[in-house]
Design a protein around this nucleic acid. Sequence first.
DNA 1: TATATTAATCGTATTATTGCAATGAAACAA
DNA 2: TTGTTTCATTGCAATAATACGATTAATATA
Lengths: 109, 109
Amino acid sequence: MGLSKTEIFTDRQNQIALFGKVFGHPARVAIMDYLFKIQACVCGDLVNEIGLAQPTISQHLKELKHLGLIKGNVEGTSVCYCIDHENWMHMKKLMIGFLDQDILSESCC
Amino acid sequence: MGLSKTEIFTDRQNQIALFGKVFGHPARVAIMDYLFKIQACVCGDLVNEIGLAQPTISQHLKELKHLGLIKGNVEGTSVCYCIDHENWMHMKKLMIGFLDQDILSESCC
DNA sequence: TATATTAATCGTATTATTGCAATGAAACAA
DNA sequence: TTGTTTCATTGCAATAATACGATTAATATA
């Protein structure tokens, strides 16, 4: 079908999948990398930094914003983006909880 | 277009995106959860455990195997799946390195 | 007011993903 | 050999994601 059957999975599994999906595109990884590197808000030079067209970047930003990982503050004609540290921390906790399951797990083969 | 422009991103960013994508579906998260929970190899009862058809599970397993996160050992007519702990650790290191960027980053707004 | 700047949105072409019925392949049992 | 079991593969339909040109909306500036 092309449609994920989210109803048969737990909320936690669906949430992990949502965050996984948002990091499932290198452009969004690159956007986050840049926001972390710059250590401040970025006023829309992401189009020059990353080599994609303005509507494409805008779309990726929208998805990151939709999951609450970044915020966009309007300043005049431009918009300043920065990381939502609190939401990032929550996401990080969830993802690391998933990734860290191996420390309790024995190797069997 | 529908085609990611991987060539304009770093290898690291593309790799993070690949792992992100594989966790971008709740069925694959559920498969990993189950493998960790069971603490042993699983011989094909994943179809019953997760509520998807056999070809669908097989396809998800293939993607996890392709990234090296699980191994499949043929045993008679059945196949036993288990986690590749070494590759999981490498993946985990990469992902946590990405997620942990916030500890060096100041909040600006 | 007219123009420029910035970024979101719309529309659309292209490609990817998801899900499953049907089929195939391999090992085992009778 | 003839079924049976188990899982992979194929083929296809439906939906999602990616990318960008064109346009729109909002604000600033001359």
